[in-house]
Design a protein around this nucleic acid. Sequence first.
DNA 1: AATGAATGAGCGTTCATTCAT
DNA 2: TATGAATGAACGCTCATTCAT
Lengths: 208, 208, 208, 208
Amino acid sequence: MKVRKKGSKRGSYKKGEDRKDTILDAAYNLLINSGYYNLSLRKIADSAGISIGNLQYYFPSKDMLVEAMLDRVIQGYLDSFIEIRRHGTPQEQFLAIIEEVITDLGTKHTTVFFPELWSLSNHQKGVTKAMDAMYDRYRQVLVDIICDMNPALSADQARRLALFISSSIEGHTVFIGYRKPWNKETGNLVKMAQQSFLWLVMEGEIPA
Amino acid sequence: MKVRKKGSKRGSYKKGEDRKDTILDAAYNLLINSGYYNLSLRKIADSAGISIGNLQYYFPSKDMLVEAMLDRVIQGYLDSFIEIRRHGTPQEQFLAIIEEVITDLGTKHTTVFFPELWSLSNHQKGVTKAMDAMYDRYRQVLVDIICDMNPALSADQARRLALFISSSIEGHTVFIGYRKPWNKETGNLVKMAQQSFLWLVMEGEIPA
Amino acid sequence: MKVRKKGSKRGSYKKGEDRKDTILDAAYNLLINSGYYNLSLRKIADSAGISIGNLQYYFPSKDMLVEAMLDRVIQGYLDSFIEIRRHGTPQEQFLAIIEEVITDLGTKHTTVFFPELWSLSNHQKGVTKAMDAMYDRYRQVLVDIICDMNPALSADQARRLALFISSSIEGHTVFIGYRKPWNKETGNLVKMAQQSFLWLVMEGEIPA
Amino acid sequence: MKVRKKGSKRGSYKKGEDRKDTILDAAYNLLINSGYYNLSLRKIADSAGISIGNLQYYFPSKDMLVEAMLDRVIQGYLDSFIEIRRHGTPQEQFLAIIEEVITDLGTKHTTVFFPELWSLSNHQKGVTKAMDAMYDRYRQVLVDIICDMNPALSADQARRLALFISSSIEGHTVFIGYRKPWNKETGNLVKMAQQSFLWLVMEGEIPA
DNA sequence: AATGAATGAGCGTTCATTCAT
DNA sequence: TATGAATGAACGCTCATTCAT
C-alpha cells in the first residue's frame, strides 16, 4: 500500500511539512531496506540530503521521528481500509477485503514493515499505542461488514470474529510475503482464507 | 516453551559447553527483555558474569552468537512439537496442538521472541534459514496429523492446510500475546481456531 | 623539512581547516615519535585536544586521516624541492641538491618518516600512489639539472641517472640519519656522493 | 635470499627447536604478506597450527618472538654474504656482490622485509641492535674486498667506502624492488652501480 | 531553517598476556 | 609440551544528542 502525502487541497504545503515528508520518506525506505536495527539519524539525514543538525530541528529525538514515521505509514494503511467498503454486497466486500489484504502482504514494504512494527511495539510504548489504534480501526471495518453479513451475531461476537480473522491474515506475512518461501501459494491461501472465514462468520459457533 | 540444556547423560558437562549455555541464556533473556536492537555483547557478557574478551573466545562474532542462540531456542520449540503427537485420535491431537500452540503465545518469551525472529529473518540470511527450517519441521507435524484425519487429501493439499493453519495461529501472537490487549480472549480464540481449522480440514475445498 | 600550513592569504582560516591542521600535526608528531604501529585515533585525538568523535567528524576513517597526513608531509618536501633550483650553474645546483637532501636525512622527522612511508607503501595502495607521485616529482628536478649538465644524455639516460642518484641518497637514511651510528660521517658521505654522482653524470656510461 | 634452517648436521633437531622454526616461519610469512602492523600472535599461532598458549610457551612475549624472527632472517642474509667471497679476483668479487645484492632486492621478501626492519629499528631498541650488527658484518665483507682492490686506502677510508656503497644499494629497495615501478630497470642500475662504485674505489678522493 | 562543530557513550572486535590443567 | 579459559585494555568506528551561529 502506497504511503500518500496528505493535504492535497490547494497545493499549498508549508515548506516545513514538505521537508518533514522528505525526511520520513527517507526513514521509511531505510527501515524497509535495512531494518530498524540499522536505522540511524545520520543515514536518514544523508538519504534526505540534509544535515543531521537540520534533521533534528524537525525531529528533536530519534523516537519522535520514528513515531512520526510509523504514524504516517499507518495512516496510509488506514486510508486504504476506508476505500475498500464501497461496492457490492457485504459478503462481496468481505471476500474482497480478505483478498486485498492477503495480496498486499506480498509487497516488499508490507512484508518488511509489519514485523518491524510488531517487534518495536514490544519495546516502545509509543509504538504500541499507535499500532493498537491502527488495528482497532482496521478491525472495525471488519466488524461492520460481519454484522451486515450475519445480523444474528452480537457486537462481542463480531468483534471476536474480526479479531480472529485479522490476526490469522497477519500471520501469513512471514510465510507468503515478499521473497518468502511460500509466496507462490498466495492465491491458494486466499481461497482457503475466504471459505474458512466465510464459514466461520455464517455458521461458526462463536463464543458469546 | 522452556529452553532446555542438552547433554543429560552422565551429568558430565564439558566446562566450555556449560559456559556457552550460560552465555546463550543471558543473551536470550536480554533479547526477550530489551529486543534485538538493544542486544549488545557487553550486556551479554555482563549478564553472564564474564569479560567480553572471554565471551568472544566462545563466540567469535555477534552473528555467530545470535545464530547459536536462535538455533538453541528453536530447538526447544521443535522438541516440544515432537512430544505433542502422543495420545488420542488424530482429531484429538489436532485440537490439542492448536490449543497448546495458541496458549503458548501468551508466554512472555514467545510473545517477544517471534516478532524479533521474524524481523531479523528479513535482514540476516543465517536467521532466515534457521527459521524456515524450524517452521518446516513444525508444519510437518501438522501435515502428518491432517493426513491421518482426512486421508482423501493429497500431500499437497495437506501441506497447504498446514501452512494456512500454522500461519493463522502465528498471527495471533501480536494480539493475544503476553500483555497484549486481547490476551483475555485467548480461550475464545482457541475455540474459534479449533472449529474453523477442523471444518477446513474435514470439509473445506482445498485447492489441488 | 618543516611542514608548513597553507592558506597564508588574509590570515583568515576557516575554522574547520584549522582544526584539520591541528589534527594532522598531532598525527604526524605521533607517527614520528612512536611509529605507525602505535598510531591510534585515540592518541591523535588526545594529542590534538579533541574528542575522538570530533576527530572522526573531520576524518571519517583512519585511512583517510593517514593519507591526508602523508599528502601534507609529502607536499612539504615537494615545496622544498622546488625552491632548490634557483641559484648558480647546473653543476652548482646539482651539488647543492645532493648536500641539502643528504643533510636533511639527519633530521629526526626525515629519519623516521621515510622508513614508515616505505613500509606503509608496501601494504596500503593509497600510500603507494602518493609516494610514487612524490618521488616522480623529486626525480624530475634532478632530470632537469642533469640534462643541463650533460646535454649529450638522452631523456631516458637522464631519468636513469636521476633514479640511481635519488635511490642511492635515500638509502643513507637508515645509516646516517638522526641518532644513527654513522651520523657523524654525514659530511664525508656528502663529499663522496657529490664526486661519485658528478663523475657518473659527466663521464659514466649510461645504458641507453 | 632464502632463510635456511641451521643445524644440518646429523638431522637430529630437538623437537622444540623444530617447533620454534615452524613458528618463526609462520611469523615471517605473515610479516612479508601483511606487514608488522598486522602481525599478531593469534595469526602466527593459527598459521603455525598451534594454540596461542603453546606459542607463548616458546616465546613468552611478542617482542621476544619478533626479535628471534629478525635474528633468524638476518642470519640467513649473513650466511649468504659469507658464501659470496669465494671466486675470482677482488674486482670480480666486488662486481659480483653488487650484482647479487641489487638483484636480490627484487625478491618479494627482501623488498618487504627491509622497510619493515628499518621502520622497526626506529622504535624498538632490540631491533636496532640486531640490524646494526647485521650491517656491520655485511660491510666488513665489502671492506675486505675494497682493501684488496686498492691497498692504498686506509682502513677508515675503506670503511667509509663500504658504508657509502652499501647504503646506496639499500636505497634501491623501494624503487626497483618487487612490484616497484622501476623493477624493470634493475639490470641497468646494476651496470651504473658497478661502474660508479668501481670508479669511486679506484679513483675517488675518499676523505681521510 | 539550516549548518558545522563537538561530545561522550557505546558498539563489535582484536589484542598481548596470564594461568590452571 | 600443549591446551583452554579468562582478562582488561585498546582498537576503529557509529551513534544520538547538543549547541553556537
